[in-house]
Design a binder for these strands. Structure first.
Lengths: 229, 229
DNA sequence: CGGCTTCATTGACCCTGATCAACAAAGCCG
DNA sequence: CGGCTTTGTTGATCAGGGTCAATGAAGCCG
């Protein structure tokens, strides 16, 4: 059922390390699943019985306090890997923030398969190391940057992560965020009001344009870099 | 020269996955090195030519803004692994905050060895996943918690991470932090003054005792948990 | 022991960003 | 098209925590 050879993330996901025959084996373990926007796939604290590759769409990893404050601790794009291999419950919940399509595996089955396929495991290790680096750079932002610096850093990171797909044309000529204002706030550790105010202020001084709710056009990349600290 | 079989972290470091003969091979690649308190081993942004196991002592991972604000993004204890396998520069600097002893490898040599030893790589993967989980929980603290919550969370985490070694006696009966006040502030994304004030306040209400600069005694674990949010 | 340096505490004040509240603009659907 | 809901913007006010500054307590070493 799952045809890995024609998979849209075939060469970018961790599966890229596998030979066709291995791929067939893994493919039979996997199952495609659509997830609709807003739906939560894994709950914080619950046992996480599945892992998955993201084929399409965007998901968020969210940690929350007992009284409901939320912090987005990770953003997951197509070809990225979701879940917690090798035991343990998920320390954060995973929710789709757009229509998404996943390639899901039972965790135990996946763990077993991974143990027999060092190349796959190495790909996973490299990804996890990169993700850890990203998380740590984000800790600097959360702990030490001011609101303007946070928003500027966010726009730069998004320009970087969202540019490759939407045509190679003019990278600087705008991109569409997969987030609403509240989600940007949850990524930056701010309130929705401060986020909105900072964006408005940046538009007022001509740094950026906001042609629609989720569209961003960067006019002055250098100044934005400066502003990001 | 390096006798892995009698190594103090033999059963806790990633080397625990290796057979004696493999261990001998790795051991000949490694080199013991003392690092004195305050010394920086790797610099943020520089190419990181080494990886290492920590045998003894405590080190910090620090990310900094251009203008010198610092955020501690990781704390490294004995048996933990340091460095960035598989290419790339280090995105943070690594400094000893106490006298430390390391078991150092050239990164390229280590990468090569790891590629041939899946079990080692799996151990490394598990460690990295755990570290990522920890980093993400810390992001919630940095982005969403108040100063009192931050300090309470910090004390609980430290009570947890520092208890096993220093005698199993009374876990609640105090432990010695390897940090000064400024470092606690850099971990929590606060200033040294706020950190100090929060600790003083907690002592005032009897939650904790502060018998000496770096010693902490927790009197009311439940209340502290409550306070941590 | 005594002076010096480093580290921690405490106080006064201020500013950034949170909170509360009203309003405006988009999207949605009958 | 028009009402309703959701999402975003803007304003007024407030407070948590930062900043600046002074004092106090520990460690260090001659």
């Amino acid at each position: 059922m799952t045809d890995c050879l024609s998979c849209i993330v075939r060469n970018r996901a961790i599966c890229a390390s596998l030979r066709p025959d291995e791929l067939g084996l893994l493919g039979r373990m996997g199952r495609r699943q659509r997830v609709s926007s807003g739906h939560t796939l894994l709950w914080e604290g619950d046992d996480a019985p599945v892992v998955a590759n993201v084929l399409d769409g965007v998901l968020k990893l969210v940690a929350a306090t007992a009284d409901g404050r939320e912090q987005i601790v990770g953003i997951v794009f197509p070809s990225d890997f979701i879940g917690r291999p090798f035991g343990k419950e998920s320390p954060y919940s995973v929710s789709a923030i757009s229509e998404a399509e996943l390639c899901i595996f039972h965790r135990d089955q996946f763990d077993e398969f991974a143990a027999d396929h060092p190349d796959l495991q190495q790909k996973l290790l490299c990804r996890t190391l990169a993700e850890l680096d990203r998380a740590r750079r984000w800790m600097l932002l959360l702990g030490r940057k001011s609101a303007p610096e946070k928003v500027a850093s966010f726009l730069l990171e998004m320009a970087d992560r969202l540019s490759p797909p939407p045509s190679a044309a003019d990278t600087a000529r705008g991109f569409e965020l997969p987030f609403g204002r509240q989600q940007i706030a949850d990524i930056l550790g701010l309130t929705i009001e401060t986020t909105s105010r900072q964006l408005t202020k940046m538009r007022a001084v001509g740094l950026i344009d906001l042609p629609s709710r989720r569209k961003i056009v960067i006019n002055d990349l250098a100044a934005l870099n400066e502003m990001a600290g």
